[in-house]
């Protein structure tokens, strides 16, 4: 059996009295593509926020590569090897395409402000490496993000290309685990198909383990609702969430 890369142990998250995630167990093995599904408001994005350290879970523990990352600063978690994209795109819109990707190499590069001011040979070599890395990451998307586009501001990209750029930016942090939050949201069927192929390619060629919030591209599913699959599948609330309720009179 493959090594557990990420493991959530009975993780709960409550905002005041609102329990968004309740005693969730989840594990992602090295090299897997795992999909999180659930209706709106089920807490899928909250789950991503918990893993990446935006929120600290109220209960339970999160273990990444054998190390607890609960309560760590988000940038440290990213440095350990977890990168994400956002459901609502959060690119650095007024920076160029290549700068967006280069910026994400921050965590695994070292030259500080003083070396930058003096432009030491080491700093310049590292700049070259960052640029090569960014070009390589952008090349992953074929012609989509190539050539003259590199020096265009990110806001000039089309919606689909912005989604691609977000993935490219996330991969520039050199992650082991890639969290994709609805990568195909707002895409047309062709583009959706392209994105599913891309996710497969990211695992096979890029070597990333992938946790994705999406509905139709998975190795196995993970439940947001607590309990066994059988329990959840017959859980009235799940049925209600997906299929709606019987017409009942309120009051």
């Amino acid at each position: 059996m493959a090594e557990k890369l990420l493991e959530l142990k009975r993780v709960s998250m409550a905002f005041g009295g609102l329990h968004v995630v309740n005693e969730l167990d989840l594990h992602v093995d090295e090299g897997e593509i795992v999909s999180v599904i659930g209706p709106n408001g089920a807490g899928k994005t909250t789950l991503f926020n918990l893993i990446t350290g935006v929120y600290e879970p109220t209960e339970g523990d999160i273990v990444f590569a054998g190390r607890s990352i609960k309560g760590m600063d988000p940038h440290k978690i990213t440095k350990l090897g977890i990168a994400r994209t956002f459901q609502t795109l959060r690119l650095f819109l007024n920076m160029t395409v290549i700068e967006n990707v280069m910026a994400a190499a921050f965590a695994h590069t070292r030259a500080g402000a003083f070396r930058a001011m003096l432009r030491t040979p080491g700093m310049r070599r590292e700049e070259g490496e960052i640029r090569n890395l960014a070009e390589e990451r952008l090349a992953f998307f074929g012609q989509r993000l190539m050539g003259y586009r590199w020096n265009q501001p990110a806001y000039s990209l089309s919606y689909a290309n912005r989604r691609r750029l977000e993935i490219a930016r996330a991969t520039a942090t050199n992650p082991r685990l890639l969290l994709l939050d609805e990568p195909a949201a707002g895409m047309n069927p062709t583009e959706t198909h392209e994105i599913s192929e891309l996710i497969g390619k990211l695992r096979d060629e890029g070597g990333y383990t992938i946790l994705v919030i999406e509905h139709d591209m998975l190795d196995h599913g993970v439940k947001i609702s607590e309990g066994s699959f059988e329990y959840v599948a017959t859980d009235e609330r799940v049925v209600e969430a997906y299929l709606g309720t019987k017409a009942t009179a309120t009051k």
Binding site: R84, R90, L91, F92, N94, M102, A103, F106, A172
Partner: peptide, 17 residues
């Protein structure tokens, strides 16, 4: 680049390491 990322979107910058 990190400064400008911070200006554009602090949360995204933090999550990009």
């Amino acid at each position: 680049r990190a400064w400008r990322s911070l200006r554009e979107d602090p949360l995204a910058a933090e999550l990009m390491g």
